[in-house]
């Protein structure tokens, strides 16, 4: 057997990466789409009037109050404009999501492997998975105080449930012969767990992470609406109180922007982590 034999049945290699980069028309469609978004928004303003401030007003509010704002201080917000609040909410969402994701992934993969873990976690997940996590928020505020911690714990709980369900499903979707093949090669349970189940479920885990992170921003913000003195939710509710709709939408827009960026980074990470995936499998 020589090399030539093997290359004969080699597939034509699709080398997208090495192809010369041509300016793709896709980017024009995206730019056009963004323009359309602002046009429709402006038209909406012209029709509705004061209740929907035009994009430039909202952007102006977001920019002028970004780092420092006497106006915000006048409203009773801590000094420093949007910035410290954005940082606080981002911290809550990311940390909560990360902690929950690790726990949920471990319990999910664990219950796919062991019936005991499955039976222990099932009723807990059934309860936490069906009760809208928001209902639990006031409990957290009472138990852990109106603090950063209760927000983080809330987000972590939600993310853990989501990742648990995704991890469980990921292993179910993984063909059992992968694990069997590993075991005939001498792999023990731990080896199968971390060399087969874990990497094999990475694509679906990223799906779960995306869902959890997407919801984390809103969860963090609404706990801030309920209490705590920091966070973009606080800005939103405060500016809402004085009917300053432009500043309110400014906060919302900034939060959405961060969410979009975080999501894009997550997708980049997914692409890097799933280079082995056949095209079009996800």
């Amino acid at each position: 057997m020589t090399d030539i034999d093997a290359t004969r049945d080699a597939m034509p290699v699709a080398d997208k990466a090495t192809a010369p980069a041509r300016p793709s028309p896709e980017i024009w469609w995206t730019l056009g789409g963004i323009a359309l978004f602002f046009i429709v928004w402006t038209l909406g303003h012209l029709v509705i009037g004061r209740y929907l401030p035009p994009p430039w007003q909202v952007i102006a509010a977001a920019v002028t109050h970004f780092f420092d704002s006497r106006y915000f201080v006048g409203l009773g917000l801590p000094p420093g404009g949007y910035w410290p609040h954005l940082v606080s909410t981002t911290y809550t969402a990311l940390l909560g999501c990360a902690v929950g994701a690790v726990i949920g992934t471990l319990t999910g993969l664990g219950s796919a492997h062991s019936n005991v873990i499955h039976q222990i976690t099932r009723p807990i997940v059934a309860i936490l998975g069906t009760v809208p996590i928001l209902v639990a928020a006031p409990f957290f505020l009472i138990w852990f105080g109106v603090s950063e911690n209760s927000k983080i714990i809330l987000v972590a709980f939600y993310s853990a449930v989501v990742l648990h369900l995704y991890a469980l499903r990921a292993v179910e979707h993984l063909h059992p012969s992968f694990a069997e093949s590993a075991s005939t090669l001498g792999a023990g349970p731990w080896m199968i767990f971390h060399r087969v189940s874990l990497p094999g479920s990475v694509p679906e885990l990223f799906g779960g992470l995306r869902a959890a992170l997407g919801a984390a921003w809103g969860l963090a913000a609404i706990t801030e609406l309920l209490g705590t003195d920091r966070g973009i939710g606080r800005v939103i509710i405060t500016t809402w109180g004085v009917q300053d709709i432009a500043s309110m939408m400014g906060g919302l827009l900034l939060l959405a922007l961060i969410a979009v960026i975080a999501d894009a980074l997550l997708m980049l990470a997914r692409r890097a982590a799933t280079r082995w995936m056949p095209e079009g499998a996800l």
Binding site: S177, A187, M191, R195, V196
Partner: peptide, 30 residues
């Protein structure tokens, strides 16, 4: 299962998340 008996399955069981080299190494790693 034991290392005295290896198996080639009917299905495609080459681990897609490992390089070809890592696949072949897997039994030795285990």
């Amino acid at each position: 299962p034991g290392i005295d008996r290896g198996m080639v399955f009917q299905e495609d069981t080459v681990f897609p998340w490992m390089t070809v080299q890592a696949n072949v190494e897997f039994g030795l790693l285990a």
